[in-house]
Nucleic acid binder design. Structure first.
Length: 275
DNA sequence: GGTTCTCTGCCGC
DNA sequence: GCGGCAGAGAACC
């Protein structure tokens, strides 16, 4: 069997199998040694067999939750061994509990507030888990619309008294990012996006990496375009420093909240770094 | 906490 | 191009 065919076969096996297949099982099925199969699979798909299986299972969970009458049915339907594991992983996958996901996040409370900063208007929003969005923009109205798009079914609660302290902390962080943001974050995204965002948080303060460098850092050197898309999907400005990713030739490339802002932020970080 | 599995590096042919 | 093995780390019980 040619390698490409072996990988495709393995993918089909993972997709069709009810229970999870071990690395050895898959390797045997396509006639390669487990170590070589592992390498080959990763070279072709950018994911390890286990990652691939996890991603596929995540898709099944979403589909099952949408289709099945009860969560228990969804658990069995998406191939989990125990409900404990299901809840553990589904929370991270969905960014909310399974039951809340079924309701489309409709009973979720999102507190938010808008403040003025030297970078323009700032919107901070938090779920029960932590800060879920930090948006920058030129006017409050646009920011609020963006928030509604991010959480279409949530109850958006503005002007909560106890929320001002959180907002103040974020504003302080925006003005002097070196101090860091010491608040829990509610990071919601696909497994791949979370991997990219984690990589961004590893970029040292005051430095910039290229998209290629980030792709290599997460072990997927050919995924530069996907990396750029994941950066653009960031909803936590500055806290997840997507502004520290620029083009290899030094050009700033794009920024969800405007290239001008990207430039200002980077200049500031460069200055602050040596202080 | 021990065991099993995953993942990678390294060497061999 | 492919296999085997070792070692570290993650996952599982």
């Amino acid at each position: 069997m040619k390698n490409a065919a072996a990988v495709t076969t393995a993918c089909r096996l993972i997709e069709e199998s009810e229970e999870s297949l071990s690395l050895t099982d898959l390797a045997q099925a396509v006639g390669l040694s487990s170590s070589y199969f592992h390498r080959t699979f990763k070279a072709h798909t950018g994911l390890t067999p286990k990652d691939y299986a996890a991603a596929h299972r995540a898709k099944r969970v979403r589909a099952a939750l949408a289709r099945e009458a009860t969560i228990t049915n969804a658990i069995y339907d998406s191939g989990f061994s125990s409900s404990g594991r299901f809840y553990e992983t589904s929370r991270a996958m969905l960014g909310m509990t399974p039951s809340r996901y079924r309701e489309g996040g409709s009973d979720e409370d999102i507190k938010f507030a808008i403040a003025k900063t030297t970078l323009g208007d700032l919107l901070v929003a938090s779920s029960a888990t932590g800060v879920a969005a930090i948006l920058l923009g030129d006017d409050a109205e646009t920011l609020l619309r963006q928030l509604q798009d991010l959480f279409p079914k949530a109850r958006l609660l503005g002007a909560e008294k106890d929320y001002e302290a959180v907002v103040a902390q974020v504003v302080g962080f925006i003005e002097a990012p070196k101090i860091g943001l010491h608040l829990p974050l509610d990071i919601r995204g696909t497994a791949f996006q979370r991997r990219v965002w984690q990589a961004l948080r590893d970029i040292p303060f005051g430095q910039t990496w290229s998209y290629t460098a980030v792709a290599e850092y997460i072990g997927m050197p050919r995924a530069t375009r996907a990396v750029a898309k994941a950066c653009a999907a960031n909803k936590l400005a500055i806290a997840i420093p997507c502004h520290r990713v620029i083009r290899r030739d030094g050009a700033l490339s794009g920024y969800a909240w405007g290239v001008d802002r990207k430039e200002i932020i980077l200049d500031r970080e460069k200055l602050e770094k040596d202080m």
